[in-house]
Design a protein around this nucleic acid. Structure first.
Lengths: 128, 128
DNA sequence: CTCCATCGTTTACATACGTAATCGACTACG
DNA sequence: CGTAGTCGATTACGTATGTAAACGATGGAG
């Protein structure tokens, strides 16, 4: 009875905001997470609690008991999330090719001078 | 009473599949759209009709009567959709900077030789 | 010990989304 | 003319998401 591959369940927008906090620093309690996101997003603590529960259900967060409350920490790396989201976009919009995405960003002036310089440097590295 | 800025309403995943067909060729009837997507996605004509209606409601499609049926065509350019989706991702995941996205794609081997060559060419153009 | 603040859990409810059946109008065929 | 097929519109229904209040356990203050 091997566990099925269990491809990670999709994380929603609101849930993502919570994940960001925990990727920044963890483990944290629900109240601590709220301190970071409730004001900017206009949420109540109750909302954060719901999102945390859903993320635990989705196996995106792990809990560790600490007295009467829980400490939450990410169970999926930010890298991995960012990777799959990026791939999703590139697949959906650019036929899986990264170059057209780059071309698009270039054309729409979404690239700053710094971006361009940085990318050039990265390219140089790739070729070595 | 000027129309409110009316920022384009969000297009869902299933709806996007329909848009792709119409960006490819338009105007088309519902049945014609179905011919393109129903089999690959396992949809019925009814589903396509629903999606078309929702897209019209969202102002993403325009209709033009043709006898007893409608011809549908995109009202938002693919460019514009792709642009806003890309920006959304870059904002959410990379703090609005495109370079980190590029770095990520590079690191995760999402870039083919061809991609790299193409991007180099684009960079050269940008600098001229 | 008692009571209150605080946890996580359960329940709630509106909107969006995926997917589709049904319905009333109309047209083309016989 | 009546009828069968087809169209868009309406209605349906389950799950996901955003947002939160209510509830039951529990631990710490007095």
């Amino acid at each position: 009875m091997s566990e099925s591959p269990e491809q990670p369940e999709r994380i929603s927008d609101a849930e993502h905001a919570v994940m960001e906090v925990l990727w920044q620093r963890s483990p944290l309690t629900a109240a601590e997470v709220c301190e970071q996101v409730c004001t900017p997003r206009g949420w109540s603590l109750a909302t954060v609690k719901t999102l945390l529960s859903r993320l635990v259900a989705k196996q995106a967060l792990a809990t560790e008991p600490d007295g009467k409350r829980f400490l939450y920490s990410p169970r999926v790396a930010r890298e991995s999330y960012v990777g799959s989201e990026s791939r999703r976009l590139v697949d959906r919009l650019f036929g899986g090719r990264a170059a057209p995405l780059f071309a698009h960003l270039a054309e729409s002036d979404a690239l700053t001078e710094d971006d361009i310089a940085e990318i050039e440097a990265l390219l140089k590295e790739l070729k070595s």
